[in-house]
Design a protein around this nucleic acid. Sequence first.
DNA 1: ACAATAAACTGACCGGCAGTCATTATGTGC
DNA 2: GCACATAATGACTGCCGGTCAGTTTATTGT
Lengths: 233, 233
Amino acid sequence: MGTAERKQREKELRKKQILKAAEKIITRKGMLSTTMEEIAESCELSKGTIYLYFKNKEELNLSILIMVLENFTRIMEKNLKKLNTFEERLRSIGESYLEFYKNYPGDFKIMNHNPEQHPEIEHSSRELERDLLATSSKLWGVVENVIREGMDLGLIRKDIDPLEIGISLWASSNGMIQIMEHIRSDAQRGVHEKSNIEEMDEYSRRFMGMDFEQMLRNLWAAVNNSILVKPAY
Amino acid sequence: MGTAERKQREKELRKKQILKAAEKIITRKGMLSTTMEEIAESCELSKGTIYLYFKNKEELNLSILIMVLENFTRIMEKNLKKLNTFEERLRSIGESYLEFYKNYPGDFKIMNHNPEQHPEIEHSSRELERDLLATSSKLWGVVENVIREGMDLGLIRKDIDPLEIGISLWASSNGMIQIMEHIRSDAQRGVHEKSNIEEMDEYSRRFMGMDFEQMLRNLWAAVNNSILVKPAY
DNA sequence: ACAATAAACTGACCGGCAGTCATTATGTGC
DNA sequence: GCACATAATGACTGCCGGTCAGTTTATTGT
């Protein structure tokens, strides 16, 4: 009798529906401003029902984060598949990141959202934690593989850890974009509609006299240069 | 008659007292978990009074952020003054950052706290915005000056923008530490007491098999190498 | 077809917190 | 010691995350 299985599938489906609906709102309003009530309304359920599928708001947010990370990894992998030379592939990682930031600014913000810890509150399920760790590990792994590829080709110094480079690139990109968000929000607190690269560029130029994308590319170049056997000065 | 002036001074003093008290709590509990009531209690005032000195919680948080940034800039400048050679001074910037992270983990968290924007809510005062921008500009400026010094000595390539390097270093360091916080909080959601370098290192080694400080230093080296005239491989 | 049982769903309610405001207390000038 | 301004208060409002007793809907056994 497949009823139990169908029930299970339906339950998973509902969960996905809620996640999708929540993502839609959160990408517009941000995690903090979005209320559980709003999410419930948008998928035509009551607030209580949401809590049948997610223990609390934090778990819901975490689940969305996992979804977004998976999505980004997919994009990055898709872009990598199209390319043949190692140089292109190394460059492609940064480009994917920038592309994601441009095309999905809301999701990007989710990706970089760092939840504040409340020591008193009971923490989210171990399972979800493991999922998140696994998902981000997979993401870094993709970068790691490209670096490793470069090592095999003798193009990248073998005395460094490929994962370390992956994380460095990732970290510095995040940091750079965050600093830009900071500058933008300092400059235009509460007035803007949504994050986009043109706006970012404008502020970047206005306040620091330089192009944002160019800065990001230069930073990547800096990291890349230091890992290549023959740096391209 | 100096009464008005004294009143003014007293008002400023109160504001500082509130800020100090708030900082003390926030460094322990974080910005989100700290309530206005708690802050009020800790400086023996009522909640309403706090709102006479700060328009809302966001403005209070922003004022604290400015205070923390000023403090960090002071530390960085103090460390720079002690050193004579350019190489030491360049290195010192990164070390100051790490030192601040180790010694004032709560303040460090404030420094990296990115407030979510609520478009509906009226934004904070223009004056405060300008203060924040001026303060962070001053911070980057310190880095910029060291880079410029290196250029004058012919040790740093002149075809790059010193401010850009300053921001890059700052951004990548922030990003790196944030990613570590992420990993740590993924691994140990809600269980830890407070941020400290030993704990960070433990997680860094456990999950990525590498030392956190070493990673940070390597990242700085990467950026530095790409700006030096003769990279030190 | 229908009762028994389980599973999904609801929304009124609770507690906590940001922010408000009518009222009270304190200090200053005359 | 009175008039006035300024500082401070805390009860109150509205919002939101989270709960739970009760209701609706689906499934199973006979």
